[in-house]
Design a protein around this nucleic acid. Structure first.
Lengths: 235, 235
DNA sequence: ACCTGAACACCGTTCAAGT
DNA sequence: ACCTGAACACCGTTCAAGT
């Protein structure tokens, strides 16, 4: 903050002072551009108006930067969850928020899906899911197991969606036409089920699939809690 | 097959004749080495005893090669499913087989989890799952939706497991210690659920999680079929 | 104390040249 | 008709040199 005459106009030289937060901000701006802009160290330098290698002064390597970026996006997910929901509502809100944020920053969502960030917001998510499964009626090892089921399944699903979203538009269109076109042209003798359902297969939407998946996870928790609560009662 | 004196000893020059199948075989050999050996075009050339760029004579690019390799591994999964199982058994066998094969060839499993190969064995897998959900009692749009739920969830889960397996041993160990160590050192006031369950969290196994996830998918199908079959009957 | 820029060891892919 | 090998346009990261 000493003399530096004007650090607004030419941001390159004078007011450089890179900070971890500024680097994370720039990373999110690039990530939000999806498949239009690769998330590279050189691109990041450009976005910051600094030398590409400057970030190594603030993060050990690209992986550590990505973990920090991921934790920030986890914060966005947590902020999107309203207060006062019951356990099912909280899990649904977490699921919807995770998908939305993963599709907003697809590079982050796809790269971090199989990772553990071990940063503050991750702990808050764990706490949230554990609270939900305990409110549902699970305890101890059962609560821990079902937390992992929800967390791992959701993260995997959302990560794959983000990875798919990262393809450029042409590659995605080719994949999608598989459902609408190629499944209709299949040998009816060898593949009778596909033949019979080719029209219905083309009409399933991503939203329906996600809703069914999240619903399956919630039902599993509910059912397990019921079984443990009243093991005597016949069905 | 003309003169070529000896194509056994020095496989490099004489008996070159690369074929797509030979390239896929070599790819699987490299993929099976997991994190010990990167799956690169140059490594593939080495494994084949040929110039790295020779594969471009048989595959448009690395992505197309990977899709072909993936379809071969799908064949391995299908071959591992025994005859005569009921629908639940077939889905479980498919799930177990997919996980096993994805962990056997982690590069393939992780790269292909968000893709559609549109090759023969993929159609056979679709046919199998559709048959299972129809045997469970679902039809039309419901069968199509639940097929997608099973396929997408399973593929995502298995793909993430494979991606995680691709880290080298040190990085994995660091991630695992998070469960056993860092969760015990958390602020009990801010994160009471984690504090209470830190011991149980450390003891959940991957096998339990996968079993719970697959069970949740099967239960969801069963429950939906029940609801559609007898909509009148009260619970 | 932080940033720069050349350099290194990698990638996937193209293309003229060989046989 | 297929393979070779130099070359290109990229990567992430290191390190001596600048300020």
């Amino acid at each position: 903050m000493p003399k530096s005459p004007a650090n607004t106009a030419r941001s390159k030289r004078a007011g450089s002072q890179l900070t971890p937060d500024a680097i994370i901000d720039a990373s999110l701006r690039i990530a939000a551009r999806g498949s239009e802009d690769a998330f590279t160290v050189r691109r990041l330098g450009e976005e910051l108006g600094a030398d590409p290698t400057a970030i190594y002064r603030h993060f050990r390597d690209k992986d550590e930067l990505l973990l920090s970026v991921a934790d920030r996006t986890l914060g966005e997910v947590l902020d999107s969850i309203p207060e006062g929901l019951d356990w099912k509502g909280r899990i649904r809100a977490l699921a919807d928020g995770s998908l939305a944020v993963a599709l907003k920053y697809p590079v982050v969502g796809s790269a971090m899906a199989s990772r553990t960030t071990r940063r503050p917001n991750e702990f808050r998510v764990v706490e949230l899911i554990l609270g939900a499964v305990m409110e549902a009626g699970l305890e101890g090892a059962e609560a821990a197991l079902h937390y992992r089921m929800v967390a791992d399944s959701l993260l995997a699903y959302v990560g794959q969606q983000a990875a798919y979203f990262l393809f450029d538009a042409e590659a995605r269109a080719a994949d999608e036409s598989a459902w609408t076109r190629e499944y209709r042209l299949v040998d009816p003798r060898a593949l009778p089920n596909i033949t019979r359902l080719s029209a219905e297969l083309a009409e399933v939407t991503d939203e329906q699939i996600f809703e069914a998946t999240v619903g399956a996870l919630i039902s599993a928790i509910e059912k397990r809690a019921e079984t443990l609560r009243g093991p005597k009662r016949p069905r």
